[in-house]
Design a protein around this nucleic acid. Structure first.
Lengths: 135, 135
DNA sequence: ATGCGGGTGTAATGTTATTACATCAATTGC
DNA sequence: GCAATTGATGTAATAACATTACACCCGCAT
């Protein structure tokens, strides 16, 4: 899944996320794009759906918010097998660290195989305090 | 954290969740408790907050819904260290399988230590198809 | 009896996400 | 050329999920 051409709305939404230093809610994105002509939530959600499909954006379930993928160039997001990304989210400063752990991925895969469960999408989110905020 | 005495509202909410065969949204719980005198969402959310604190109920972030803990008796939920529970959620039939994997837990703990990130709550949810539905 | 903490009841509001319907643009096949 | 199809868009309305604010009540320790 290589980077596809983005439509105008998709580009606008992706740019806002890329330029943000933290996760944004759909409605925050909407507000930031009012000047670019956005009027309704659906415009944001539609763009986000496509960006999520392409692996360019992640949804943080525990926050109901979205971030640009931190590893955009590589095979990370949708590439050769190691598809699951994990997040550490600082409850104090809002910083999000995206990472991947083969071992965890493999382990959960094993569990699924053992149960004959067919995974479609896996969410891993650690809420807590980052080094700076925990001090 | 042993089972504390529940208040009336907490018991009502817990009973509804226990009797349900799948996750329930807060508003579904509210509807089921109308006859018991519930009138407002807050009554449900307040009870859920306490039940979550006590580890008797889990929140499924990717579903905005709640389930009774599947391992109520044991040390599972809040006991000696292995605090993180994972869920496999069937997108077809809605069934939820709650499980724990020491390896995954340990691995994420290591990652956090390496980054000096202090975890407060970890969410692991696998969305997909259960054996019956995948067939 | 007074003050305090925790639980409760109610209303209003805030936040997140979807449905429904109309339009527009690019592509395909005839 | 021109329908038919497909995918993106615009707009309005509504649904679904969650919180804030305020008042009251009760048990209990001072």
């Amino acid at each position: 899944m290589n980077a596809p051409a983005l439509t105008k709305n998709q580009s606008l939404v992706f740019d806002v996320l890329t330029k943000s230093d933290g996760p944004l809610s759909a409605y925050t994105i909407l507000d930031r794009l009012r000047d670019s002509g956005f009027r309704a939530p659906l415009q944001v959600y539609r763009a986000l759906d496509k960006l999520l499909e392409h692996g360019m954006v992640h949804r943080l379930e525990s926050l109901n918010a979205f971030v640009a993928c931190a590893h955009p160039q590589s095979s990370c997001c949708t590439g050769h097998g190691h598809g699951t990304v994990a997040f550490a989210i600082c409850d104090s400063c809002g910083q999000v660290i995206e990472f991947h752990d083969h071992e965890v991925d493999h382990r959960l895969g094993d569990w699924a195989r053992g149960r004959k469960f067919r995974p479609a999408k896996t969410t891993i989110e650690i809420r807590g305090l980052c080094e700076a905020c925990a001090a």
